[in-house]
Simulated assay, not measured.
Amino acid sequence: MTVTIDLTLDCTNAQLLAGFWKTALGYVDEPPPPPFSTREEWLAQFDLPEGESVEDGAWLCHPERTGPRLSILKVPEPKTAKNRLHIDIGIPAEGEPAQRWASVKAEAQRLVAAGGTILTEDEGHHVVMADPEGNEFCVAAASA
């Protein structure tokens, strides 16, 4: 039996994080499940608590439906501790180690421009970053 996994991020602003992670991963908004034509229609089948809306969640996927889906859901409590599970972003990087490291650093700067923050760097290996709500992730050269 083959299983799949989805990753879920709790947050306070689902649309902000969805925009960041679409930029970071190249993901797109996942269409609603059949037979629904919109997320609003899909959510209408659930008994949502008063004040909750479709804006409180985002569902992302790889454009070719490879890799895990990412659900981003608003929760009332803030992030209080380091993630026990985090995302590693492996970027294509070719050449000598210095060239590969330059590619990693360039990707980290691209994600800073998108709202991320650099937390630490392991020189020549990976950059530890945080998304706009403080969820940690790493950027490194993809394994060949």
Results as ranks from 00 to 15, higher is better:
49 P>N: 10
49 P>Q: 11
25 L>F: 02
90 G>I: 00
33 P>T: 07
59 W>R: 07
49 P>F: 00
110 R>N: 14
131 D>K: 06
140 A>V: 01
25 L>H: 01
71 S>F: 08
35 P>S: 09
79 K>L: 15
142 A>F: 01
32 P>L: 03
72 I>A: 03
6 D>C: 06
53 S>W: 03
85 L>K: 10
22 K>N: 08
140 A>K: 07
31 P>C: 02
67 G>S: 07
67 G>K: 05
95 G>W: 03
6 D>H: 04
75 V>W: 09
57 G>W: 05
4 T>W: 05
65 R>I: 03
99 Q>S: 12
21 W>H: 03
73 L>E: 12
53 S>Q: 10
92 P>C: 00
35 P>K: 10
64 E>T: 04
137 F>Y: 09
138 C>F: 02
119 L>F: 04
98 A>Q: 14
129 M>W: 03
134 G>N: 11
119 L>C: 10
57 G>C: 11
111 L>Y: 05
64 E>D: 15
36 F>L: 03
59 W>L: 09
36 F>E: 13
45 Q>S: 10
44 A>E: 15
93 A>V: 00
53 S>H: 11
42 W>Y: 14
92 P>Q: 07
31 P>H: 06
101 W>F: 03
93 A>L: 07
61 C>W: 00
40 E>Y: 01
17 L>H: 04
52 E>T: 14
124 G>H: 02
62 H>N: 15
130 A>C: 12
65 R>Y: 09
53 S>M: 09
84 R>N: 15
75 V>A: 11
42 W>D: 14
19 G>R: 12
29 D>F: 01
111 L>Q: 08
101 W>N: 02
78 P>M: 11
107 E>M: 12
11 C>V: 04
79 K>N: 12
24 A>F: 00
